[in-house]
Nucleic acid binder design. Structure first.
Length: 289
DNA sequence: AACATTTTCAACCGCAGGAGT
DNA sequence: GACTCCTGCGGTTGAAAATGT
């Protein structure tokens, strides 16, 4: 079939011949150059002015899903997968909204991930992927596996140090820096995806990939105590951010602590994916297998 | 190595909603 | 309010790549 088609079906496009199908290198170059000089947006105008024989829609899609410089390539990390599972529980198939919490990932990519990986799992389990039963299966089986993967990644990483950019950003947000902490109850690691979600408000998550450090906050480690080097302990309070790496089995090596100011407020108890019962439920699965 | 089957993912389509007239 | 145009979203398709036999 020809890659040229005449589009007269709606008012968006001229009757001129429009190309369809895969983009060529020349088209990509043309589009990239045009946007670098004129900026994004006004896609129909762009399509006409750039000399591309494509619809505005097609140009927009190509740019946003493929050419845009900050697009992240490669497989989704366990952290990202966990976040997708969690956010889908909240919002359902609202891919663009979910994508907002995964910098560098597109709604199309997340949608593809869901359809090819998640729904495949559902089929294998013979469960409707929109059912409550499937959500339960994800919580009890898949999430612990992802958490394990995250732990493994961290465990094997020899260059585990927090990104330099994090401290200043948090301090800029009113967090007070504390140091000298050592170990912490590993149960807290259960809340990592929630923390990534929060941290993503402050910084580019891609930084986390290069360090594999764990970031968590006191609001999720409700039962845990941070233990400092002199073995005195203090509770993790809501809004505190900790930076730690996985040391030996089950122990997180605490590196930094950013104490929230007293005005910090965020109600994480409303999050359907993470409640106290679940955390203990997950723990069982995660550490039995 | 050759073919069949499955998986992945880029790109398309139709629809909804907002802005402008 | 009605109409057109444009943009963005979510569902779907199908070619290419990967995997299995």
């Amino acid at each position: 079939m020809s890659n040229i088609t005449k589009n007269r079906s709606n008012g968006n496009e001229e009757g001129a011949e429009q190309r369809k199908g895969p983009w060529t290198l020349e088209e990509d170059t043309l589009l990239t150059n045009y946007i670098s000089h004129n900026g994004e947006g006004r896609w129909n105008l762009l399509a006409k002015s750039s000399g591309l024989k494509r619809t505005g829609k097609s140009c927009r899609l190509r740019w946003l899903n493929y050419l845009k410089p900050d697009i992240k390539r490669g497989n989704l990390t366990p952290q990202e997968q966990l976040l997708i599972l969690e956010l889908h529980t909240k919002w359902g198939n609202r891919w663009s909204k979910i994508a907002q919490y995964l910098p560098g990932r597109t709604d199309n990519e997340i949608k593809n991930y869901w359809r090819t990986r998640v729904q495949k799992q559902a089929r294998q389990l013979n469960i409707d992927s929109n059912s409550h039963k499937f959500v339960e299966a994800v919580r009890s089986l898949w999430v612990p596996r992802l958490i394990h993967k995250m732990k493994d990644n961290t465990y094997t990483n020899t260059k585990a140090s927090p990104p330099d950019s994090l401290g200043p950003i948090l301090q800029d947000k009113g967090f007070t820096h504390e140091s000298g902490f050592n170990n912490i109850d590993c149960s807290t690691s259960i809340s990592m995806s929630q923390d990534l979600h929060k941290i993503s408000q402050f910084m580019d998550l891609s930084d986390l990939e290069t360090t594999s450090s764990l970031y968590f906050d006191g609001s999720q480690g409700r039962s845990s105590q941070c233990v400092s080097e002199d073995y005195s302990s203090f509770p993790c309070l809501e809004g505190d951010y900790m930076v730690a790496t996985m040391g030996n089995s089950g122990i997180l090596q605490m590196q930094d602590c950013y104490m929230a100011d007293s005005t910090y407020e965020e109600d994480v108890t409303q999050d359907p994916m993470w409640n106290m019962d679940d955390i203990w439920h997950f723990k069982e699965y995660a550490y039995l297998s």
